[in-house]
Design a binder for these strands. Structure first.
Lengths: 190, 190, 190, 190
DNA sequence: GGCTAACCGAGACGGTACGTCCAGTCTTGCT
DNA sequence: AGCAAGACTGGACGTACCGTCTCGGTTAGCC
């Protein structure tokens, strides 16, 4: 049993420094400019230490999201009584948030990380867009309960379509013309 | 006027060779593995020749899409009379196509190219997903005419939401659970 | 014989422009920085025109020397009556001239051109140091005639040794310690 | 004091491999054909490793000379009793050595390296021709002691003139006509 | 005056080397 | 055993020139 904890334990300090440095570099210059070299230099750690604990840049990003260091803006789905108004507000809120260069860049960072490492993509998305998904589904269920949404509607489908719309919007950077209201209108079956 | 055609004219042969090599490399190994070095070697051209005409890898991809060398599978929206069935079929067709590793890899290539070069993103998307958008919008208009869709529906919004869903699906690689039918169901207001 | 002068004759204007540009570039930055590209750009000529008439940079340098565009400072061997004083003065004059960065750089240019193209070396040296050689030999003959030099002395040997000393001095850039006077003293057999 | 030996120490093996490769390439094709690229490939090292330790090709050559990997043929000045005969033999020996293409090429390599990098020239010459200089000066002092050379003769001047003559001879590749014997004859004051 | 030949400038072509940057791995001594 | 430091091989980057090759256009001699 003596073998279990031999040697120096992992330095939590180094781990934090690396994650913080990675977060700063991503927000400053974007995920595609991110290099292990730069993370090591900025965090004052050795490169080996990074490779020892993370096997890819995407996994560092995953950790950042997990720890809330790198997070899409919290965007709760309010409950004012009107489901349509609440969803529209949510989509408008996200759209407005994407107008901020930092948020848009983070969103693109997420997409880049996911798109060139399919293995990690699910993890990344469940961590970052998961809360949105969950919030939307819950609000939809509430809407069903209050009779504002037909029973047959698949809440997951609506959530996926909404988030997919947000992603598409982030990538095309406002080239699209359809408004949040019209999307929600469609999704709710009006 | 004498300035127009001075010097040796651009070699169309070299241009084709470069684009063909780039296409082959993308389909073989994915966009993120693509290097200028490899394109030059495979096409038998000098690196400078590539830099002379394209300032980024994304622009090469744009040319490939423009020329139809690199294209998402054509997926026409059929008109069988039932709008819902036709859209569901379309979405199922795309989803099936994405099950092919080559197509999924191309989709991710497109997303990667777009996500780390916002300037080119719009161009890339309008060239690659534009046909889908157009096909959907037309079918929706037809649906309106035949009374299967309410007049108030924004066709662009439905098209964007459908394509966004496809993108999201490509990125999360089947982790999602909602079916094409349920998405279409929602989008059509059932 | 009709073939002799058909076609457009060589442009003397272009030839002059090329040589002038080459000379300026050599004096500005040294022979080893000289590029055909730069000569063409500066002279407003096409690169092919240069290659058509000169097959190497060394040959351009040879032309420059031939035409007196690029020439070591004229340093006549005076005849004051004293052979020793005259030769010492000559060597001191050359040594002083080499203190000028332009002249030293030209000397090094000559040496570089010669050292990486053995074929052209003889031509280059006979054109550039030839006048020195000739001047020294003539003065030595005069010295023999006036009884200041033994009949057995080989004038070419003295000239070569003097010029070799100058070359060595140019290359070692004043690191040497022996004075012109002592060298002449030795060479004259004092 | 802790700063002295941090990080992985320099690899002596890589250093040797680089110098050996450089030496082989110089003797095979001459200094002006030498490229960093080729040294790296031949030595099996990364290019960066070369740039890390040497900032110019001339400095690699300097190291080669320092370490005796690249050396002009040893040509001791014998002492048979006759100073004139010994110096003549020395000069003939060098002249013969220069007839060997390898030696001549090395000599030109040295001159090229020195001529396009004035800063390094002194270092290069003191390392390569220094032994000649020293040997000549010593033999001349011996000659003075035995009464074969006048006391007033500057030994450094004679040594410089002899070596300068050798350099000039190497550059002009046998175009000269004066014989070793006549040069020595002159230098000794006969 | 038209024809042919050789020149001219410009500038694209396939290459090669440059010097830099980063990846991922491998030693060091220190903790 | 982890850690910072920093050297190692390897390989892509974007740039600069090389020497060659085409263009349109010019300038001569010759029919």
């Amino acid at each position: 049993m003596a073998e279990a904890t031999r040697g120096r334990p992992r330095s939590e300090k180094a781990r934090r420094a690396i994650l913080t440095a990675a977060r700063d570099l991503i927000t400053e210059s974007g995920y595609s400019e991110l290099t292990i070299q730069a993370i090591a230099a900025r965090s004052g750690s050795g490169r080996q230490t990074i490779y020892r604990w993370w096997s890819s840049k995407a996994l560092i990003a995953a950790d950042l999201i997990l720890e809330g260091e790198l997070t899409l803006p919290a965007q709760p789905v309010r409950d004012t009584g009107s489901l349509e108004r609440d969803l529209t507000e949510w989509l408008e809120g996200i759209a407005n948030a994407m107008a901020d260069a930092n948020v848009a860049s983070l969103m693109r960072a997420l997409i880049t990380a996911a798109s060139d490492d399919p293995e990690e993509a699910k993890l990344l998305y469940s961590m970052s867009t998961g809360p949105y998904h969950q919030g939307i589904v819950e609000r939809l269920k509430q809407g069903k309960a209050s009779g504002q949404l037909r029973e047959s509607t698949d809440e997951n489908a609506v959530a996926d379509a909404l988030i997919g719309t947000v992603l598409f919007g982030a990538l095309t950077a406002g080239a699209r013309t359809s408004t949040p209201a019209s999307v929600v209108n469609v999704l709710m079956g009006r």
